[in-house]
Amino acid sequence: MNILTYLIPISLVLGCAGLGFFVFTLRSNQYDDPEGDAQRILSGDYDDKPKG
């Protein structure tokens, strides 16, 4: 049962990491266009001349 002293904190830390990552995605406007992003990943276009 001593393993619990490691496992529980590890699971909590992993959970917190997930939560933190979600907060990051939320802050960086990644939920503004869910439909567009879902379609964009299928697009075969490459931007050969990106504007600076």
Partner: peptide
């Protein structure tokens, strides 16, 4: 296809700096 057509059409113009379509 609609998204990329519109974005390409807009980005082809020199006066346009960036164009992004929001499909939602």
């Amino acid at each position: 296809a609609c998204m990329s057509t519109v974005e390409q059409a807009l980005n082809a113009s020199d006066a346009v700096r960036s164009a992004r379509v929001n499909l939602t």
